[in-house]
Measured scan of single mutants.
Amino acid sequence: MEVRTIKVFTTVDNINLHTQVVDMSMTYGQQFGPTYLDGADVTKIKPHNSHEGKTFYVLPNDDTLRVEAFEYYHTTDPSFLGRYMSALNHTKKWKYPQVNGLTSIKWADNNCYLATALLTLQQIELKFNPPALQDAYYRARAGEAANFCALILAYCNKTVGELGDVRETMSYLFQHANLDSCKRVLNVVCKTCGQQQTTLKGVEAVMYMGTLSYEQFKKGVQIPCTCGKQATKYLVQQESPFVMMSAPPAQYELKHGTFTCASEYTGNYQCGHYKHITSKETLYCIDGALLTKSSEYKGPITDVFYKENSYTTTIK
């Protein structure tokens, strides 16, 4: 009895394709271990004539594949690729409408935090270190965002349907971005203890939790000093293409032309909904596939993004 075979390709990165001759009487799992086709788990399936010449994702289970996976995804987590594939199996079914010149995501599976993050990423200057993220990001900007969303979920250790947080998501993504040249110098002034300067680099240099107003941050924000008295913390120097200011959701007025974009969060910790506000020729609110415009805006804002380049204080 002759062994019926077909020729397929296996890959971990969709760049390096490895030619395989597979036995049609055995499952993919018996031949390769966990195997995925377009995100779908085909591990328990036997090869079919229609699979001839198709590319299958496999887990990096030998040295060659491990090197290829690390170079593309910059992670050695053995569960990463499987999590990416199972997320992709959902995100490829989502709709990605162009809204006001940006790629958004039609609401499904509690994905409003991903839509808000995706919209924000198209408006701030950011370059990702893992080629996987950078490639998928370019495709997302062009309207094909399924891979990018699935990668975000995998890097953030999230599953489809789980509630997510924009600030946490951005923080994970910033860790995989090139923020080497970003720098922030802060000064804390206390009447009792004097003053202390701190220099922050990388992710810490672009994120701040405690106030939404970048102007206020430049002037000074009140913080408790270690001595128990009130101290003032203010920005001395900022070198970065953008800054992200966050605070627990509270009524906040966004003035046209003073910011790049913002995240609105309605609801409580267990259950809520994100919308995205962007400042173009007027203010726009993007909620999944829905767009509304207004000249002014007041609502429960939790993150505001500002364009920056270089700032030095005039406070002496």
Rank of each mutant, 00 (worst) to 15 (best):
P78S: 11
E253W: 14
L200R: 08
T91D: 02
K183C: 04
G82R: 14
H51V: 07
Q134R: 12
H273Y: 00
C271W: 15
K92S: 08
M244I: 08
A150Q: 04
K106D: 13
T27K: 10
L235N: 00
E125F: 03
E2C: 10
L88F: 05
P34A: 15
Q20W: 08
T260S: 02
T5H: 12
T266P: 01
T43N: 06
Y57G: 06
T192I: 10
M170L: 11
L102W: 15
G210D: 03
Y36F: 11
T55Q: 11
L17I: 14
S279V: 02
L121D: 06
H256C: 15
K7Y: 11
G220A: 02
L81T: 10
C193V: 00
Y138S: 13
A145K: 07
Q196I: 09
K93T: 10
E253N: 10
S171R: 15
I223W: 03
Q98R: 14
Q196H: 14
K298Y: 14
L290S: 15
L235F: 01
L200S: 09
N89D: 09
V8K: 07
T314E: 15
T27R: 09
S263T: 10
N16S: 09
L186K: 02
G39N: 04
L235V: 05
C193Y: 00
T10F: 10
H276M: 11
P241D: 05
G164H: 08
T198M: 13
F32L: 14
F9G: 07
Y269G: 15
I277P: 05
P130V: 08
K218D: 00
V206N: 04
E162W: 02
A87G: 14
I15G: 15
I223C: 15
Q237M: 13
G53W: 11
K7L: 09
Y138H: 14
S79F: 09
A250I: 08
V58R: 07
Q134P: 01
A132W: 00
Q31F: 12
Y284C: 14
L254K: 01
R184A: 11
V160F: 01
W107F: 06
T192N: 11
F148R: 05
L254W: 08
A250H: 15
K95Y: 15
V99S: 03
N178Y: 06
H90W: 11
A69S: 10
K233M: 15
V12S: 04
G29S: 10
T199E: 15
T312C: 08
Y155I: 03
V8Q: 01
N111G: 01
N268I: 01
S279W: 05
P131A: 02
C225H: 07
L88M: 02
A108F: 08
V42T: 09
T43W: 06
V221W: 00
E125S: 07
M24Y: 06
V22M: 11
G53Q: 13
C112K: 04
Y274K: 02
T258Y: 08
F70I: 12
P130D: 02
T11S: 09
A146V: 05
G29C: 14
Q175K: 14
A150N: 03
P47H: 07
G161H: 03
Q222N: 10
R83V: 05
K298S: 14
F259I: 05
T27Y: 11
G33A: 08
Q237L: 11
T169F: 10
A136W: 04
T35R: 09
A69P: 03
E308R: 05
Q238W: 00
G164S: 03
M244C: 04
K158N: 00
T10W: 12
T260K: 00
S246V: 00
Q123E: 08
G288Q: 00
T75Q: 07
V160S: 02
T120E: 06
P130T: 10
S263P: 05
K54D: 10
K316C: 15
P131L: 05
T91I: 04
N16L: 04
G82K: 15
T5K: 15
Y138V: 13
T43Y: 07
Q20S: 12
N187K: 14
S86K: 10
A108T: 02
K106F: 12
A40S: 14
G39V: 07
V188Y: 09
I286A: 05
G220L: 03
L119M: 04
G257I: 01
L119P: 03
M244N: 01
M207R: 03
A177R: 02
D62K: 07
Y252S: 07
C112G: 00
T5F: 09
A250E: 12
D23Q: 10
Y252I: 11
E144W: 05
V22T: 12
V185A: 01
D303G: 00
Y113A: 02
E308P: 11
P248E: 02
Q20V: 12
T27M: 13
Y269H: 15
V3M: 06
S171A: 13
I6A: 14
D38I: 09
C225K: 01
T5W: 12
N178L: 04
R141K: 15
K218C: 03
G299Y: 05
W107S: 07
V3W: 14
L118F: 11
G82I: 11
K93V: 05
M209H: 15
F128Q: 04
T312A: 10
D41F: 05
N268M: 10
R66H: 13
V221S: 03
W107D: 07
